[in-house]
Simulated assay, not measured.
Amino acid sequence: MRFDVLTLFPELFDPFLRVGVTRRAYESKQVDVRLWPLRDFAEDNYRRVDDRPFGGGPGMVMLAGPLERALAAVKADRAITHPGAPAVIHFSPTGRRLDQALVRDLAQGEGAVLLCGRYEGIDQRVLDRHVTMEVSLGDFVLSGGELPALAMLDALTRLQEGVLNDAASHQQDSFSDGLLDCPHFSRPEVLETPEGPVPVPPVLLSGHHAEIARWRREQSLALTLRRRPDLIEAARREGRLDRKDEKFLASLTVPPAAKASPDGKV
Rank of each mutant, 00 (worst) to 15 (best):
A73Y: 01
D50C: 13
D77H: 03
R97K: 15
L106V: 07
I122P: 03
E68R: 09
L106W: 03
G138Q: 11
F140I: 15
Y119R: 13
V103T: 10
L63W: 02
L142F: 11
L127E: 06
A70L: 11
D139L: 08
V126H: 03
M62E: 09
V103Y: 03
G59P: 11
K75P: 00
P93N: 09
D40N: 09
D50M: 12
V131N: 00
F91W: 11
D123A: 08
G65L: 13
T132P: 01
P66Q: 05
A112M: 00
A72M: 07
V88I: 14
D139V: 08
T81L: 13
I122F: 03
G121E: 08
T132G: 14
L114S: 09
C116G: 04
L142Q: 13
F41T: 00
A72S: 14
L127P: 09
R104W: 09
R118W: 14
E110K: 12
N45W: 00
L71H: 02
A87R: 12
R78E: 03
R129G: 00
R125M: 01
P83G: 10
L71V: 06
P58W: 15
V131M: 01
V61I: 15
R47T: 01
E120D: 13
G55H: 05
D105M: 12
V141K: 10
V141M: 12
S143T: 15
A87Q: 11
F54Y: 15
L142C: 14
R97Y: 07
R104T: 08
L63P: 06
R97F: 08
G55F: 03
L127A: 02
V61S: 11
G59F: 15
G121C: 09
R47L: 05
P83M: 11
E134Y: 01
R129P: 02
A85L: 02
P93H: 02
G55A: 01
D139M: 11
I80K: 15
E120W: 15
V126P: 05
G138E: 11
G65H: 12
D139R: 12
G59I: 13
T94Y: 04
R125G: 04
P66E: 04
F54M: 06
R47M: 01
Q124L: 01
A101P: 07
P53E: 01
M133A: 13
P66N: 09
S136V: 03
V103N: 08
A72R: 13
G84Q: 06
S143Y: 14
G109I: 04
R52S: 14
K75I: 09
Q108L: 13
P58I: 14
D44K: 08
G117M: 08
Q108E: 15
V88P: 00
A76T: 12
G109L: 07
Y46G: 00
